[in-house]
Each structure stands twice: as C-alpha cells, then as structure tokens.
Amino acid sequence: MDGTDRGRTGGREPTLIVSVQRALRLLEAVGGQDRGATAKQLARQAGLPLGTTYHLLRTLTHEGYLQRLEGKFYVGESVDGIGRAGDRQAWQADLRTRIARLGEELGAAVYFAVYRDGEVRVVDVVAGPGRPAVAEWADFRATAHAHAVGLCLLSQLGEQERRDHLARHPPEGLTPATVTDRAAVLRRLAAVGPTRPVLERQEYQPGTVCAAVPITVGAVVATMALSLPLSQSARLPAAAERLRELVGAMTPSFVL
C-alpha cells in the first residue's frame, strides 16, 4: 500500500491488523496456561501494555474466545469451534474423496444424504462424464416419497416419525411411476429391510433409476445412493448390492 492508500484509510487498517495480532498473542498465551492466567501475567507474557491487555481480554471474553473464572482467563468455547470447523473441512474433503471413488467404481453418480431436524438433507453429490447427477427439479426435502434417498432415510425412522414427515410433505405425483397413496408409501417403508438397498425407477425423474443403502451410526440417520440413466437400468440391482458392500466396509465414523 502506498502513501495515497494510507491517506484514504486514515491509517486505520494497520491499526486493525495490529489489534488482531495482539489478540492472537493473548490467545496463544492463554492456551499455554493449563491453570489459567491473570491479566497482568498475560500482559507480561504477550509483551503488551496492561491497559491494552484489559481491553482485548474483555473483547475476547465477550465473544466467547476466553472465559474468566476467579480472576483468571481460560480458553473459551469459541476457540473449540474454530477447531471443529477445521475438523469439519477435513471431514468434508474425506467424504468427497470417498464418494468420488465409489462413483468411479460403480460407474454412477453418487450421493450422501442425512435426515436431520425432520428434513432430508443432501450433503454431497459427485458425478462425472457419462454419469450425470439427478437435477433437483422438485425439492428433495418435500419429495422423499419419490426418490431412493428419501425412501431410504424414512425407512430408518420410527413409524410415527414417518407419518409426521408425510403429514408435513404429502406425497405428490411427480411422474406416472410415483406412488402417491400415503398408506402405500408407509407399507413400502415398513417392508424395507434394515440393511437392504432401496430401489426406485423413474419415480422422481423420468429416464433415471436410483438405489440407496442405509447408514445408521448412533443417532445419525444417513444414506449413500447412486443414480443411473434408464438405459442402464439392468445394472441397478447389482450396482446397489455392490454399493451396500462398499459402504459396509467403510469406517462408520465418517458420517458423524
């Protein structure tokens, strides 16, 4: 930045950067004290004026990065959140790598989805040349009765939870093959085996067939699914079974 730039900002940007540097030095100082530290101790360790230290400590405590107990400062929950965000990014990268490998072996588009807070949530989709993903032309959350992902997730719920979901999202006809009778959908869900793939043929989108396998780890309700163009529908049962085998061989912790 040249002198003209500094004139326009009034010198404030460098001051903000210094404040951030000082705050980080304080966080590092607190993190190195298992038994907590007072403001005076932290000021000495970070090499900061005591008044500046008090100001930054109040701000960091207010934002949850630090907590104060009996005159000493400790690491707060917001710092843990930063670590969890990093863990989540690593988890997402690992998940995407796994899905990509599944897609390449199966020659299909592959999906990972969960049932959370009463809704179907597609977490990730990996497609490729010759294996296009299903376009979400109708909200996946409201059409669980019509696609393999939703049917597989609902099949893992209790009967009352299934009824509640269908009451909130009544079955609608999306294609000529869609089952729209609520009782028929409930019977279909009840008939799904606990580890068996769910197959769906052109119920959500004409020209596409799908399969999904359940993943249940603790309270997590999840599924891995695949889709194929109708021209490859003869491959669906074998591909679904292979998907079940591959997912079963994975470490279950990757869905947490």
Rank of each mutant, 00 (worst) to 15 (best):
R121W: 13
R235Y: 05
A191K: 03
T251F: 11
T180E: 08
L16N: 10
S233D: 12
R187E: 15
E119Y: 03
K40S: 15
Q202F: 03
E77C: 01
K72D: 03
D124R: 00
R98G: 10
A113H: 04
R84C: 01
V126L: 04
G218I: 02
V114N: 05
L69W: 09
L24T: 10
Y74N: 05
L66W: 00
M1E: 12
S253H: 12
P237R: 07
M250C: 14
G31F: 02
L69N: 15
V114E: 13
A108C: 11
T195S: 11
V198D: 00
Y65D: 07
R58C: 07
L50I: 14
R196E: 15
A240E: 04
E13T: 12
M224L: 11
R187H: 12
S231G: 10
P132C: 02
V179I: 14
T52K: 12
F73N: 10
R8L: 13
A85N: 10
V79D: 02
A144T: 03
E63C: 08
R162T: 02
A37M: 01
T38N: 08
R22Q: 15
H62P: 03
R242G: 05
E136M: 10
P214F: 01
V75N: 00
A39F: 06
R101V: 12
R235C: 06
G3F: 10
V126C: 04
P229E: 15
R244G: 11
A23W: 00
Q205N: 09
R44D: 13
V192K: 08
G51T: 14
A142V: 03
L48S: 08
D124L: 01
A113L: 06
D87F: 09
A167Y: 00
P171Q: 03
G173D: 07
G10R: 04
P206R: 13
G218E: 06
